[in-house]
């Protein structure tokens, strides 16, 4: 064979490996047309559904759109990041992971790549939610600082959920199992102050709704965008997200190593 010889250079650095994996995942996201379409359509449909179908019943004054926008952002972000579980699981059950693992590189970057792509997809979905919200009457009173702060909280939330879904993808035996386990997380937004105030729930459920991570995140975003009181919810939101991210990354690291050669 006339293949020229190419001696091995120092292998790709941590940064280059991560950049390559992020590029790969974004490319894969763009090619998964059905999933991308869903990620764009879902925010539009949910926004319209909650404003025009449920909105009148929940708040006859017509202000429900101002209340519900943060909830829909989170619902879409949860849904959008859930596909990370499937993407990661697909990679782990496919031969390509063995190639990455036998190269002298930071192979966990495969997972980081999917997380970064999920962040990009979900920020797009968030932009669509906000765009549609404006069209159907959303009137926030936030200044630039508030918008940036809200964006920061949304990014933290997306990362927390995505890393959790990535961990689920790593421990699930197959892509369909990953999709099944991930489903449970998608119910969390409904059991929070996303769509109705928690005071309207039965007492035992209020306990759950007030003490799960979604409620402080929602209250913080809502407060930043529409001026409702935030109180200590902001710290709770950031704390919850940071904790979830730390736990999920550690979980990913452990299960990634444990999956070694077990397909």
């Amino acid at each position: 064979m006339n293949l020229s010889s190419r001696s091995a250079p120092a292998s790709a650095s941590f940064l280059v490996a991560n950049a390559v994996f992020i590029g790969r995942s974004i490319r894969l996201s763009l090619r998964n047309v059905e999933a991308l379409l869903m990620a764009v359509m879902l925010p539009v449909m949910l926004m319209l559904l909650f404003t025009y179908v449920f909105g009148g019943a929940l708040d006859p004054s017509g202000n429900y759109v101002n209340y519900v926008v943060p909830g829909i952002i989170l619902l879409c972000a949860g849904f959008g990041s859930s596909s990370t579980a499937v993407d990661v699981s697909m990679d782990m059950t496919n031969g390509i992971i063995d190639r990455f693992r036998t190269m002298p590189i930071h192979s966990m970057g495969v997972v980081t790549g999917h997380v970064a792509a999920s962040l990009a997809r979900n920020l797009l979905a968030t932009a669509i939610v906000i765009g549609v919200a404006f069209l159907v009457g959303f009137r926030p009173n936030a200044g630039l600082t508030e918008w940036l702060a809200a964006l920061g909280v949304i990014v933290l939330f997306i990362l927390a959920f995505t890393w959790l879904f990535a961990a689920i993808g790593l421990v699930a035996g197959s892509p369909s199992a990953a999709s099944g386990y991930g489903f449970a997380l998608l119910f969390l937004p409904y059991l929070s102050s996303a769509f109705v105030q928690t005071e309207t729930m039965p007492g035992w459920l209020q306990g759950v709704a007030n003490h799960q991570p979604i409620t402080p995140v929602i209250e913080t975003i809502r407060g930043l965008l529409t001026g409702t009181p935030i109180g200590d919810q902001a710290w709770l939101a950031v704390g919850w997200c940071a904790l979830l991210i730390a736990v999920a990354i550690a979980w990913c690291g452990i299960s990634f190593r444990r999956r070694a050669g077990r397909r």
């Binding site: 250079p9 120092a10 280059v16 390559v20 998964n32 031969g95 390509i96 190269m103 590189i105």
Partner: peptide, 23 residues
């Protein structure tokens, strides 16, 4: 099992591994 990425093209597959190999 062929360790290649199905959703990428042949060219993209090789180039990805080139980059990961430090080229």
């Amino acid at each position: 099992f062929a360790a290649v990425d199905e959703m990428l093209t042949g060219e993209e597959n090789v180039r990805m591994i080139c980059r990961l190999s430090g080229l």
